[in-house]
Amino acid sequence: MPTPAGGGPFLSQIMQIEPQWIDYNGHLNMAYYNVMFDRAIDQMWAELGIGPAYMKDRQGSTFTAECHVRYLREIHLGDPVRIAVWLIAADEKRLHTFEELRHADEGWISATSENMSVHIDMTRRKVAPFPADIQDNIGRVLQAHAALPRPEGLGRAIGMPKK
């Protein structure tokens, strides 16, 4: 299952910043943070049993319903990154996740992404409950992740600082 033996969050494979993702400011363009977060979620979803094979064989998938990204520190071409993913909450149709994109060698956080995903019956393109076996997989990961310290920044809202 996606939780490493050490009991931490799911860890993606190490990814590299692609040259075409660098913008005129000389750092990773904001859109490509989402590409990397999405790639990490795809890795976790495959381990939960809801990856591409699930779509093909069972006509189910997930759609992102809401996303909140925080950009904390610039990342540049050549920087290796790894994404940690926590499953924060789940019910029969939704998954609440939190992701941290970190420099893979130095460990500092570049960005976070908090998301709500919904399960979709692709034959009807409507929100639907996960099948029982998938709910069991989700439940095991949710239980393991519930024992972890909550990541800093979870539940943040956009707003001007209070004076």
Rank of each mutant, 00 (worst) to 15 (best):
H68L: 10
Q20I: 12
Y32D: 05
M116V: 15
A53T: 14
P2I: 02
V127K: 12
V69Y: 01
T64I: 11
V35Y: 09
W86S: 07
P9C: 02
L77A: 06
W86Q: 03
D136E: 12
D105S: 13
D91Q: 10
M160S: 13
Q43H: 13
A65W: 01
H96D: 12
A146R: 15
P52K: 13
M55W: 14
G49R: 08
V69L: 02
H27F: 07
I120F: 06
D136N: 02
P129G: 03
L28M: 12
Q143L: 15
F130K: 01
I158G: 00
D133M: 00
H103C: 13
N137M: 00
N29K: 04
K162V: 12
F10V: 02
E114W: 02
F63W: 14
D23A: 08
M160H: 09
P4M: 05
I158Y: 12
L48P: 03
Q16E: 15
T97L: 14
D57K: 14
V85L: 10
W21A: 06
G155E: 05
A144I: 07
L48Q: 03
P4R: 00
E99G: 05
I22P: 01
I138G: 00
M15D: 09
D79G: 11
G78F: 04
P161M: 04
E106W: 08
G49P: 04
H119G: 04
T62Q: 02
T62P: 01
L148D: 07
A89L: 03
C67F: 00
V141T: 10
S110I: 04
R102G: 02
P151F: 06
F98P: 00
Y71D: 00
Y54R: 08
A89H: 11
E100C: 11
W86K: 07
R39N: 14
A144R: 13
H96W: 13
S110Y: 03
H76S: 11
M15W: 08
P149E: 12
G155W: 05
A84G: 13
F37P: 03
H76T: 08
I22L: 11
D105C: 08
D23G: 08
I17W: 07
I17Y: 07
V141H: 00
I88G: 01
D57E: 15
P151E: 06
P2A: 06
G26Q: 09
W108C: 08
N25S: 11
I109S: 00
T64G: 12
P19V: 06
K56N: 11
R156Y: 05
M15T: 06
Q135T: 05
W45I: 00
P131F: 01
R102Y: 05
G26W: 11
A5E: 14
V69F: 01
R156A: 14
R140L: 13
L87R: 05
I17R: 09
A111R: 02
A132E: 15
G8F: 03
I17M: 13
W108A: 04
D79I: 01
W45S: 06
G139F: 02
N29I: 06
N29E: 10
R58M: 09
I134G: 00
R58K: 14
R82I: 12
E106Q: 15
